[in-house]
């Protein structure tokens, strides 16, 4: 038999608050500054900054400015279009910024992604990358345009 169908769509708007910690982190991006927070127990600088150290379960204390230069720990390159997500090809990296003990996820830019067989020649885990800042900044994670490899 041929079945009957009903189309459905979730179209519900939300307004998420960034709260105290994430607002402060994002506001600092406007000034081209990246801050983490220190855990008073394990002494690690956590990134992104948050109220509680998830390893120690104690509240974080000092805000610590970290570098906009970091080491690439891991990456991937999106080659297929996924509905509702950014257009391919684009690369996402996990960057351990100097002065931080955790890594930040962000776009990788300034590299040629057209030939997947040459990826590991142009994007190297363990190499240094630098933040490229957006001209206009609004207190958003994309105030950093992307991270590009340093020579």
């Amino acid at each position: 038999m041929s079945y009957l169908y009903i189309p459905a769509k979730w179209d519900v708007e939300f307004l998420h608050s960034a709260g105290e910690f994430t607002t402060r982190f994002l506001q600092n991006l406007k000034e081209k500054k990246i801050y983490g927070v220190r855990c008073p127990r394990c002494n690690r600088v956590l990134l992104p900054p948050r109220r509680v150290c998830d390893r120690c379960f104690v509240e974080t204390t000092d805000w610590v400015e970290v570098s906009d230069v970091g080491t690439l720990q891991s990456f991937c390159v999106v080659y297929r279009k996924f509905w509702g997500l950014p257009d391919p090809p684009y690369a996402i990296g996990v960057f351990k910024l100097d002065g931080s003990d955790e890594a930040l996820v962000h776009f990788i830019g300034g590299v040629d992604l057209t030939d997947p067989t040459k990826l590991e020649e142009v994007v190297k885990i363990g190499r240094k990358f630098r933040a490229v800042w957006a001209e206009e900044r609004r207190g958003h994670i994309l105030d950093i345009k992307y991270f590009e490899p340093m020579n």
Partner: peptide, 28 residues
């Protein structure tokens, strides 16, 4: 598009703009 749903399961401030879902996690 299941990846769009998976992208709704990540931190909306730090991770969501990058389109991260389960495939990207496995790729990492």
């Amino acid at each position: 598009e299941a990846q769009k749903v998976l992208n709704l399961a990540v931190d909306p401030f730090h991770d969501r703009p990058f389109g991260i879902g389960a495939i990207a996690a496995a790729a990492f």
